[in-house]
Design a protein around this nucleic acid. Structure first.
Lengths: 218, 218
DNA sequence: ATTAAAAGTGAGTACTCACTCACTTAAAAG
DNA sequence: CTTTTAAGTGAGTGAGTACTCACTTTTAAT
């Protein structure tokens, strides 16, 4: 049901201009399902072809290698996960001092934003987490996006709210970023990857997580 | 250099009574190195045999299947990571109300204890993290150890310190455990797996992490 | 010294792997 | 309608793959 959602999202994302053929979409869908279930290395191209209802050669018409197929799935997830961290209008306003809102609102927006993203793309995140440690191409993508897009913005935020007195000046900026991010990401991974089957009171957990960070850094 | 440490630790652990032959130790060492580097599925038994200086058949003399070899490496890590969470004497004292120390000391002991363990066994943790999502045998081991060994102890701790007024009673016990654990584990994984190459002021980071949790849950 | 059990070997087995290529079919361009 | 380009096919290929087994060597027990 939400399989379609994520595929649509990927289709939109992975090929900026050119659109995919129906068979190519089928290949992506089959690859995503199988990679998530058995891992990249244990998935054979013949299995993907079978599941997609396509000849094996068709895969290699569109993707030079099997690894190419993996990267075409995983790369847009990395960038999409990093970039919109700060694409939200409210967040941009905060950065440009257009609001006097406390950073509680910033945290909430940030967390809910990424929460929804992962909720819609759990399968893709699972593949990403499984493969990131084995493929340096993915690691480099991660590093590039983090260093260029996410990290500098976080430094701004922390420093600004240190000046406003909402974050303690006793804590180093890098340490504050680390604590904030591991709490946010730790929550999302626990919620969707480690324990997706238990019943979650999402609203409550989100609020408690925000409070935890606020009080922890104060 | 610390490769020997971890192997020795594993040897002690993996075979409770019987000792390993030299060749079997070589096999384990080679398997650990290669699994960590390329992942379990992309490592061939012939490669392990080569690196260990052993005939391929020797591997299967000691381990029924390749997966058996993986589990013999990973299983003791799971239990060793979970059990001594509370094996430390001080921590036991705390549980049995033999001390009036604040839970700041509990947190510090807990964190430093696990910090040192992972420091000595980073390679093994890397393999564990890589493979846990693909092998339900490992997942079950995890779940069993967590539910039986770690979780109940954590419930005790949280409730006790809620009564002592060091942890807010407004927060659900499960939520407090989640926030505490993701912060601790998030730090350790960031420190040793994600960013092992940057220079860390470990003492500082440990203290800040403890302060963060304390203030966050208060 | 003899026997029995365990450890070690490496060629062999049946099978799977990612990838190729000569070819057919469909779509787009002129 | 004709030509060009792209999409799709599937049998074929050589290089592995995990694992077996008949055999040799080493160790331990009597």
């Amino acid at each position: 049901m939400n399989e379609k959602d994520l595929l649509e999202e990927l289709i939109k994302v992975s090929e900026e201009d050119s659109s995919l053929t129906p068979k190519q979409a089928k290949i992506l869908q089959a690859a995503i399902e199988t990679f998530a279930e058995k891992g990249y290395a244990s998935t054979s191209t013949s299995e993907i072809a079978n599941k997609a209802g396509v000849a094996e050669g068709t895969i290699f018409r569109h993707y030079k290698t099997k690894k190419d197929l993996l990267l075409s799935i995983v790369s847009p997830v990395v960038t999409k996960f990093a970039i919109p961290f700060f694409a939200d209008r409210f967040v941009q306003d905060v950065f440009e001092n257009k609001t006097n809102e406390s950073y509680e609102e910033l945290l909430r927006t940030l967390l809910m934003n990424r929460f929804e993203f992962v909720n819609r793309n759990t399968t893709l995140l699972r593949i990403l987490l499984q493969e990131v440690s084995l493929h340096k191409e993915i690691q480099e993508l991660f590093q590039k996006n983090f260093l260029e897009k996410v990290y500098p913005k976080f430094v701004e935020v922390i420093e600004e709210y240190q000046n406003k007195g909402e974050i303690s000046k006793d804590i180093r900026v890098d340490t504050a970023i680390r604590l904030m991010m591991t709490t946010l990401i730790g929550f999302i991974i626990t919620r969707f990857i480690i324990m997706p089957d238990v019943e979650w009171d999402d609203e409550y957990e989100i609020e408690q997580t925000i409070t935890f960070i606020r009080k922890g850094l104060r």
